[in-house]
Amino acid sequence: MIALELKSISKHFGGVTALENVSFKLEQGKTLGLIGGNGSGKTTLLNVITKMISPNSGEVHFKGKRVDNLPAYKIARLGIGRIFQIGGIFNNMTLLENLFVATNSGNEEEAERILNEVGLVQKKNEKAATLSGGQQRLLEFGRVMIRNDELILLDEPFAGVSEGNCKKIEEVIGKLQKEGKTIILIEHDSKRIKRICNQLIELDEGKLAKKTNID
């Protein structure tokens, strides 16, 4: 089953082309690596999927349903979660609050179980601002877990993270894969990409340059 399909997405900022005619399909349960140089349009692509920006043309389909005409929060409610490159947590809220805001149940046991899985349960009542960069990223993973998102978009989750936390993050990704989640990963380290992903797309100046299957 196709989880995500992009149909000729184009996005221009002023005169600059960020994405041009990008189309691809992603099967459910697969992990897609998104590579390309700086400014090749990788983050813009994620922004288009979650409607943080609207494309100039093209369509986004999630599980066979067109979603690019929905507001951002409705897209999120369909089960699309995201980990941001920077600033993806609420600094002045506690870890538990950061998880509660992502769900509709205020189930504390569930939240603690998930904090335990990402190794942050001891800090549950501290403000998220006290976490290290890697821990903040793990908290974001906790958020997609509690939301039980089916499609998870990861924007350089390993950037600026200590080796120990990188390992932990890879572990968490592995677990999500086992649960059958569909994942898109932006990452520069080619070894890591080969380790984690089944498919690879290379963007070059907003165009889809290459599509490979890794198996």
Binding site: A72, Y73, F90, A102
Partner: peptide, 10 residues
């Protein structure tokens, strides 16, 4: 704290 992220969480 951050409207965009709040929205991305539904």
């Amino acid at each position: 704290e951050n409207e965009l992220i709040a929205e991305s969480l539904g």
